[in-house]
């Protein structure tokens, strides 16, 4: 089972993404509501991948990613940035950071796991019959 860390300051985005990945792919999801908290959870739990918003108050996604790259225990974890649709120049700027992929909001909850799996070269996630309530476990 894949374990994904979602970092986003917006509660509804975190909850919909969690629900999507848990319900459609059966993945284990951790959530954080800030870059700083995300780094802590990444160090503690060593997720298989990190899905992170670009625009967050305080430490934004690119800054958080650069800090992660300086921490040897988590620098290897692939990071996917989640952002509103951007122009080509912004897309290149994000890609130049070295992230694994850039995904766009609004995402389709039906296909988010497929998008992540495809971007990371994982085998397609099998549909799961396991249904869970929305994850609300983000530490405040």
């Amino acid at each position: 089972m894949q374990r994904i860390l979602i970092i986003d300051d917006e509660d509804d985005i975190r909850e919909v993404a969690s629900l999507s990945l848990e319900a459609t792919a059966g993945w284990k999801v951790l959530t954080a509501n800030s870059g700083a908290q995300g780094i802590e959870l990444a160090i503690l739990h060593q997720p298989d991948a990190i899905l992170m918003d670009v625009m967050m108050p305080g430490m934004d996604g690119p800054t958080t990613f650069r800090k992660m790259q300086q921490i040897s225990s988590i620098a290897h974890i692939p990071v996917l940035l989640l952002t509103a649709k951007v122009q080509g120049i912004d897309k290149r700027r994000f890609a130049d950071l070295g992230v694994a992929a850039i995904l766009f909001k609004p995402f389709d909850p039906l296909t988010l796991a497929e998008q992540i799996a495809e971007a990371l070269g994982w085998n397609a996630a099998p549909p799961s019959s396991h249904r869970t309530a929305p994850s609300t476990s983000a530490p405040k």
């Binding site: 917006e10 509804d12 985005i13 919909v16 509103a84 909001k105 609004p106 995402f107 909850p109």
Partner: peptide, 8 residues
Amino acid sequence: KLSGNLGM
């Protein structure tokens, strides 16, 4: 925020 959330 709405532009990202509503479509979702």
